[in-house]
Nucleic acid binder design. Structure first.
Length: 124
DNA sequence: AACTTGACTTCAA
DNA sequence: ATTGAAGCCAAGT
């Protein structure tokens, strides 16, 4: 049996995996891709609950404003900023230039998905 | 059942 | 560019 909550989290993790290295997207965008529009806040919760063993690129998910969602003084903020910079993303005063680093998502989800890694396989 | 809580978003000052 | 209010919604108290 898989609860609805588990299903939500799994599909969120799947889409987060699809974010290309060096690019970022927003909580709201992940929610939409996952088929749960307006659930941006739940995406953040799902990421927080994610098993570290999954090695999710959680740091590539930022607020729609282009800013890192953690408080600027938190350790979470520092950690995310470091990880982003490590892969070439420029973080200036807590925000990222979306013109340059936003993950361009095409309307058709299939075109964005890694063909060798479908949601079905991910859930396996 | 009522109220609070978020790693959110949008819109209006 | 900043700030704040309102909207959002499932979970937890």
């Amino acid at each position: 049996m898989s609860s609805q909550l588990e299903d939500f989290r799994k599909i969120v993790y799947y889409w987060v995996q699809q974010i290309p290295k060096g690019k970022v997207t927003s909580y709201g965008q992940i929610a939409k891709l996952a088929g749960y529009p307006r659930h941006a806040r739940h995406v953040s919760k799902a990421l927080g609950a994610a098993d570290k063993a999954l090695n999710l690129p959680w740091f590539r998910v930022i607020a729609a404003s282009g800013k890192i969602a953690f408080d600027k003084d938190s350790d979470g903020y520092a950690k995310q900023e470091a990880l982003l910079k490590k892969e070439g993303i420029v973080v200036k005063k807590g925000k990222i230039d979306l013109q340059q680093f936003a993950w361009e998502v095409v309307d058709n989800k299939e075109q964005n998905a890694n063909k060798d890694f479908s949601p079905e396989e991910f859930f396996r």
